[in-house]
Design a protein around this nucleic acid. Structure first.
Lengths: 234, 234
DNA sequence: TAGTGGTCTAGACCACCCG
DNA sequence: GGGTGGTCTAGACCACTAT
C-alpha cells in the first residue's frame, strides 16, 4: 500500500474507505478505526477524515455513533438522486421537441375527496386545469391538476394557455414540502384518448401534492404515455 | 431581527437561509451575500457558513459557483430519500406479517436478452429464481430474478427455500452500483395467478440491476400486487 | 468516566472564472 | 486581476454513550 505518506483530500479518503468496504477489507457490522487513527494513517487531520466519513454515512454506507465509533452497514439504505425535473427539461434531455397544450381551465368548488386530501375549508374554490405534454408531437403526459387560489391568488390571472401550471408554480412558489406517489393505473376512455393508447392499458401514474408552509398549494395527477419508465442510478 | 449577536450553529444558519428563501426575502435567481458577509452577519466563521450553504446546495436549494457566488435556484431539484428497503422491513413497517415462498430455482444458460443487458459472456450460466412475498398472507410481490454465479460463486450453495435472494445478496454483496427503473406493466396469466389479480390488470413493476465493480451481479423484476403505491416525502 | 464523533474557530492557500 | 467558493490545518470544547 504505502499510501501513508502522500497527503490525501477528503475525496481520496472517501474513495479508499469505499474500496475497503467493497472489497471486504472492512466487513459489514465491523468497526472502523477512529477518526484520529485514520487521520494518522492518511497523513491528514481529523477534520478532513470526519468529512469523508460523514459523507459516506449520509450516502448510507456507514453508521456513526458517538463513543461507539463508525460501523459498516450491511443493508445500505441509499439515497437516490431523484430529480423532479420540469417536464420540458425531461423531454428536451431526450433530444425531442416539447409541445404543450391546454385542455381545460375552470374554477370550481373543491370536490369533497380533494378537500379531505388537502385539508381544505368546506366548499373552497379551486382552479381545475387539464393539459397535455407532447414529445415530438407524440403524447407524453396527460396532466390533471387542482390549484388552491387562496394560497396563490395570482393563479387567477394565469390563463395557462402558453405554458403549463407546473412551470408557473415552480417559478412562483418556493415550495416547502412535497408528497410524491407512483402507481400503475388502468387507462379509462378519456386517458386512453389523450395518450393515444388502448382503453385498459396500464398507465404509469404519479400523484403529487405540494405544500407551502402547511397549506396545500396543488394536487396533481400525471398520466404517462405507455412505455414510460422512470429510471434512477444510485 | 437582531439575530446578529447570538452565535449560530450551521443548522441555525441553514434554517435562517431557508426561511429567507421560502418567504421570498431572497428571490429565485438572486445572489446571496458572500460567505464572508454572512459569517459577519451571523457572528460566525466562514467555515460554518460554508457548511450550511454547501448542504443547502446539496439539497437543491442553491447553486454555488466560484467567483460567481451563491444563487437561489428557481426550480429546485431535490433528492428524494429513496430507501431501498428489504421487503420484509417494508411489510413489517405496515404492521403486517411477512411470509416468503420459493417458486422456482434453477441453473440455466442466460437468455440472450439478459446477456446483452448485463454484458455477460456468451452462454454464461445464471441462477434463475422466482419467489413470492406475502403480507398477512395476501400476495404482495412476485419476484423474478437472475443471479450471476461467476460474480458470487457462493450462490450455488444457497437454496433460497427459507428466505429470498434479496436478503441474501444484500448481506453478501457490498454492491457498488444500482440501476433502478419503475414502470406499469400488464399482468399476464402467470403474474395474475401469483398476484391474485385479473389478467390484464395494471401492475406496478420495478426493474433492478446491481453491479459489483463493473460486473453485473443480478437482474430482478419485481411485480407488485394491485393497489401498490410507492410514496416518498421530500 | 473515558473515548468517540459533532461541531466550531481562525487562518491559510488554491482553483476558478467574470470582467 | 481580484473576488468567490473549495478545501485543508491545528486546535479546541462539547455531547453522547458504552462499559
Amino acid at each position: 500500500m504505502a499510501r501513508s505518506h502522500a497527503t490525501m483530500s477528503y475525496r481520496d479518503i472517501k474513495q479508499v474507505v469505499l474500496e475497503r468496504i467493497q472489497t471486504g477489507i472492512w466487513l459489514p457490522d465491523s468497526l472502523l478505526p477512529s477518526e484520529m487513527e485514520l487521520a494518522t494513517e492518511f497523513s491528514s487531520t481529523r477534520t478532513t477524515v470526519n468529512r469523508a466519513l460523514r459523507e459516506l454515512a449520509e450516502e448510507g454506507y456507514l453508521e456513526r455513533k458517538r463513543r461507539a465509533g463508525t460501523r459498516v452497514l450491511n443493508s445500505p439504505i441509499r439515497k437516490a438522486n431523484f430529480s423532479i425535473p420540469l417536464i420540458h427539461d425531461e423531454i428536451a434531455a431526450t433530444g425531442a421537441t416539447y409541445r404543450y397544450s391546454l385542455v381545460e381551465r375552470s374554477l370550481q368548488t373543491a370536490p369533497s375527496w380533494l378537500s379531505a386530501r388537502l385539508s381544505l375549508k368546506k366548499d373552497q374554490d379551486v382552479l381545475y386545469v387539464r393539459c397535455m405534454h407532447y414529445a415530438n408531437n407524440a403524447a407524453f403526459q396527460f396532466e390533471v391538476r387542482w390549484i388552491v387560489p387562496e394560497v396563490v391568488p395570482e393563479v387567477i390571472d394565469e390563463s395557462f394557455e402558453q405554458s403549463g401550471p407546473n412551470d408557473w408554480l415552480v417559478r412562483k412558489i418556493p415550495f416547502t414540502n412535497l408528497e410524491l406517489s407512483f402507481m400503475a393505473t388502468k387507462a379509462d376512455s378519456e386517458i386512453a384518448d389523450f395518450l393515444d393508447a388502448p382503453v385498459g392499458d396500464p398507465i404509469f401514474t404519479a400523484e403529487r401534492i405540494t405544500w407551502l408552509r402547511g397549506a396545500a398549494v396543488t394536487y396533481a395527477k400525471l398520466y404517462f404515455a405507455p412505455g414510460y419508465r422512470m429510471t434512477t442510478h444510485l
